[in-house]
């Protein structure tokens, strides 16, 4: 009887020890996980309208390059990034904004007005005026930005 009672006490202590261990483990573990995965849980930064410049700068029928700088916050460091966008309009009202990054391997494309083509120097890829693949290895047309015009200023959605 006595012996059994003692055993019960030991059993309880053993159980309590494990329980406390579990509590402490959770006390460390749960915050640790939250802490570690925090960067992944962070919401993707909201896309913002980036001002490119005056819409009147765009020549009719010729892709025009706009360069603008945006601030990017990574961790505790703020960097400036350059965004380059080709804007094309045929009628001065409807604009198409294309990224200047080749969809093949990410080189920068250039508008060659003599040949009416976006030329990528890395693998001799060519894109037509509207961004469609004209020649070479790219898998898809140039990426397009959502674009709007307000008070004569062009904006693209990005970030």
């Amino acid at each position: 009887m006595n012996d059994k009672k003692k055993l019960d006490r030991r059993g309880f202590l053993g159980f309590a020890t494990w329980a406390i261990g579990g509590i402490i483990g959770a006390g460390f573990g749960i915050p640790a996980i939250a802490y570690i995965i925090a960067p992944a849980m962070r919401k993707e930064e909201e896309q913002e309208w980036i001002r490119l410049g005056s819409a009147s700068k765009v020549e009719l029928g010729t892709p025009t390059l706009f360069k603008t700088k945006i601030e990017k916050q990574t961790g505790w460091i703020t960097n400036e990034e350059e965004v380059s966008v080709y804007v094309l309009t045929e009628n001065g009202r409807d604009f198409v904004a294309m990224s200047n990054i080749c969809t093949h391997l990410g080189c920068r494309v250039r508008w060659i007005s003599d040949q009416d083509v976006f030329f990528c120097p890395c693998h001799n890829a060519g894109f037509a005026k509207n961004g469609d693949v004209a020649s070479g290895p790219p898998p898809r047309p140039l990426d397009q930005y959502q674009v709007k015009e307000e008070d004569g200023q062009l904006f693209v959605l990005g970030g």
Partner: peptide, 23 residues
């Protein structure tokens, strides 16, 4: 007494107290 659970229980209690105090 055996180290487990008699002594270890005390250690666990103390550890928990310290943890809570630090938190």
């Amino acid at each position: 007494v055996p180290f487990y659970p008699d002594i270890l229980f005390k250690d666990a209690v103390i550890s928990l107290v310290i943890f809570l105090a630090l938190a």
